[in-house]
Amino acid sequence: MQRVLVAFGTRPEAIKMLPVVRALRECKRFNVSVAITGQHRQMLDQVFEVFGEKPDIDLNLMTHNQKLPDITALIISQMSIVLGGFRPDLVLVHGDTTTAMATAIAAFYNRVPIGHVEAGLRSFDLAQPWPEEFNRVAIDSVAEYLFAPTSGAAENLDREYSRGRVYVTGNTGIDALLHVSRQIEVEEREGSNSSRPLVELDPHRSLILVTGHRRESFGAGFEGICSGLAKLATRDDVQIVYPVHLNPIVSEVVRARLGGLNNVHLIDPVSYVDMIRLMKRAKVILTDSGGIQEEGPALGRPVLVMRDTTERPEAIATGTVSLVGTDPLRIYSEVSALLDDEPYYQRRARAVFPYGDGTASTQIAKIITESFCT
């Protein structure tokens, strides 16, 4: 059996990689081992429960106030030890995190082939998102298997020097989203969902769901976001739910600026399943998340991205997603336009699937299987 090491450290990576792990295991041709760094410790554990999985190797490398150079060096050194012990034939990483980039470097140093799931995304600005744009460019430069989610991402890779083979597979995040969304719908039909509501919501007010955590928004960016949300909270017809990221640079500003405001519910980070429930319930989603730019359109929810650039132009092209930056007046006016103009809202609130049909994981497993068998 061929040995495949799947490495990740954050909740978004787990959401998008565990479907790949399951697909590889179903092939019966691979000895699959999952190694995690624990970048998102609590949130990561929740996702494993959803998919009925557990890590084989838990490096648990994160410490309080850890700096990027420190965690990068630590991941490279510790993953090198893992590679020496497991001796994989292939290492799979995802996306643009520090875990993915550092693991890819460790694999390259140890002469182990690398597969990059969600390859080819580009904002073409190394400062936005930072450091993620650098991370994904670095991974793509050394990967031998480049699993691009869209034809646009594949074209980005074709325009660059690439030593790897490019495959368009769709995005594995849609696989996970559709799987969990179907589970939620079954639970609701059968009345078996016994979970408590995360927050008491007024059925007569529109729910604005907010997520925000990007490093490039630290400081003035988050001040602007909070000012925009505070202005939105003055509307009598809205209620804002904001699961606040655990990073104190984010949480301290958000709770100081928005804590105690009417119509604003600041809650702790929620599980993946609960986030999907909130997204399905939301009227509008405000976010700086990459994954939600993919998930929102599939759920038929308008998404306003609190960034100036995006590496996901396919979502913008559908008309369901738009960039609003961190300017408070623009945030307020864009949300208000959706709430106040029903025909405009309906044009934006339609289910579209620019990131695949939910079969990306099986396609990736098939490609890897055929590669090893030839």
Score class of each variant (00 low, 15 high):
residue 286 L to H: 05
residue 146 L to F: 15
residue 272 Y to G: 04
residue 243 P to G: 11
residue 164 G to E: 08
residue 64 H to K: 04
residue 73 A to D: 02
residue 197 P to C: 11
residue 83 L to Q: 01
residue 217 S to D: 11
residue 63 T to F: 03
residue 61 L to Q: 05
residue 150 T to F: 15
residue 53 E to I: 06
residue 134 F to E: 08
residue 183 Q to I: 15
residue 315 A to D: 09
residue 181 S to G: 14
residue 77 S to I: 01
residue 25 R to L: 15
residue 94 H to I: 11
residue 135 N to W: 12
residue 186 V to S: 09
residue 10 T to F: 07
residue 201 L to T: 09
residue 307 R to A: 00
residue 348 R to I: 06
residue 126 L to T: 10
residue 185 E to F: 10
residue 289 S to K: 08
residue 320 T to G: 05
residue 215 R to G: 01
residue 157 L to V: 14
residue 140 D to R: 02
residue 216 E to Y: 03
residue 151 S to N: 10
residue 244 V to W: 00
residue 161 Y to Q: 06
residue 210 V to G: 11
residue 190 E to P: 02
residue 278 L to H: 06
residue 127 A to L: 14
residue 310 T to G: 09
residue 74 L to E: 09
residue 23 A to G: 04
residue 303 V to M: 07
residue 260 G to I: 14
residue 254 V to R: 00
residue 232 L to T: 13
residue 289 S to W: 13
residue 99 T to L: 02
residue 355 Y to W: 12
residue 294 E to Y: 08
residue 220 A to Q: 13
residue 226 C to Q: 01
residue 214 R to T: 00
residue 176 A to F: 12
residue 128 Q to H: 10
residue 250 V to Q: 00
residue 99 T to N: 01
residue 177 L to E: 02
residue 111 R to M: 09
residue 254 V to G: 00
residue 192 S to Q: 08
residue 284 V to I: 14
residue 224 G to Y: 09
residue 307 R to V: 03
residue 246 L to I: 13
residue 182 R to Q: 13
residue 13 E to T: 03
residue 98 T to C: 02
residue 152 G to S: 09
residue 69 P to I: 06
residue 346 Q to N: 09
residue 52 G to D: 11
residue 362 T to G: 03
residue 179 H to L: 13
residue 230 A to G: 12
residue 241 V to W: 10
residue 237 D to R: 05
residue 40 H to Q: 03
residue 172 T to S: 05
residue 148 A to L: 12
residue 6 V to D: 07
residue 297 P to F: 07
residue 231 K to I: 02
residue 325 G to Y: 02
residue 196 R to I: 11
residue 109 Y to A: 01
residue 61 L to D: 03
residue 313 P to W: 14
residue 112 V to G: 08
residue 297 P to N: 02
residue 3 R to K: 14
residue 296 G to E: 15
residue 139 I to K: 04
residue 80 S to L: 01
residue 101 M to L: 13
residue 12 P to G: 05
residue 329 L to T: 11
residue 61 L to S: 03
residue 144 E to D: 15
residue 198 L to W: 04
residue 275 M to Q: 03
residue 164 G to H: 08
residue 295 E to R: 03
residue 177 L to Y: 08
residue 232 L to A: 04
residue 125 D to F: 10
residue 273 V to L: 12
residue 341 D to Y: 05
residue 84 G to T: 03
residue 6 V to Q: 00
residue 126 L to F: 15
residue 313 P to I: 14
residue 200 E to Q: 11
residue 336 S to T: 15
residue 102 A to G: 04
residue 167 Y to I: 15
residue 283 K to G: 09
residue 89 D to K: 01
residue 355 Y to R: 01
residue 203 P to E: 14
residue 39 Q to N: 06
residue 278 L to K: 02
residue 102 A to L: 06
residue 229 L to R: 00
